[in-house]
Design a protein around this nucleic acid. Structure first.
Length: 189
DNA sequence: TTGTGTTTTATTGCCTCC
DNA sequence: GGAGGCAATAAAACACAA
């Protein structure tokens, strides 16, 4: 019996298994196979579990080439004493398992990358918070200093001949209180 | 022993390629 | 149009705790 004849026979035997046909225009929706009734002896297909040796040999071949061309299929089938159909089914299922495993590995890699990016983001956010706090402290200090001298910060800076107030502020926030003390000594504030 | 979850083998329908 | 691939699914076979 050819492959096609086999398929047609199976189709005719199983067509009655379907309770519904898909609505017009929804051909892509797969019909669900009806469960095989218990005791339906005619349709009973005994599953033959492959031996360890057979599986080992198939695994070896799968490792070499994941696809199965016709010649190799026939060769493997005769070598293992299996139906060529069983060999192709085994390869089909093995490819599906392999694909799942690959996806799982890809997922784990992406997850690990994502996790490290999240940690890095957390560190950066902490750093931003620290810097903001230092900036606030520096600004507060400047306010206090300029208030004590009875003039604006800019006038006090310019009075001492210093240019680039922004640069000075950056300097202060960078080196915090000790730096500020140095700066005050330097300009005699 | 039995209920339940997992794995393996097999089937089906659809799709693509030649 | 046929062969072969894939996704989805069924169901047998197996593992294992209770």
């Amino acid at each position: 019996m050819t492959h096609v004849e086999e398929k047609m026979l199976l189709s005719s035997l199983t067509s009655e298994f379907y309770s519904q046909t898909p609505p017009q225009g929804e051909a892509k929706v797969k019909r669900r196979r009806r469960k095989k009734a218990r005791g339906d002896v005619d349709m009973e297909v005994k599953k033959r579990r492959l031996t360890d040796e057979q599986v080992k040999f198939l695994e070896l071949n799968f490792g070499e080439e994941k696809k199965l061309e016709s010649g190799r299929k026939m060769h493997l089938a005769s070598e293992l004493g299996l139906d060529p159909k069983q060999v192709s089914v085994w390869f089909q299922n093995r490819r599906a398992r392999w694909k799942n495993k690959q996806m799982e590995e890809d997922y784990m890699k992406l997850k690990s990358m994502h996790d490290s990016v999240v940690v890095e983001k957390c560190h950066l956010e902490n750093e931003v918070l620290k810097l903001k706090k230092r900036l606030e402290e520096a600004e507060e200090l400047i306010k206090r200093i300029s208030g004590g001298m009875g003039s604006s910060p800019s006038s006090s800076f310019s009075n001492n001949g210093v240019e680039g107030e922004a640069d000075q502020l950056m300097y202060m926030s960078e080196y915090s209180y000790n730096g500020l003390m140095d700066w005050m000594c330097l300009y005699g504030v």
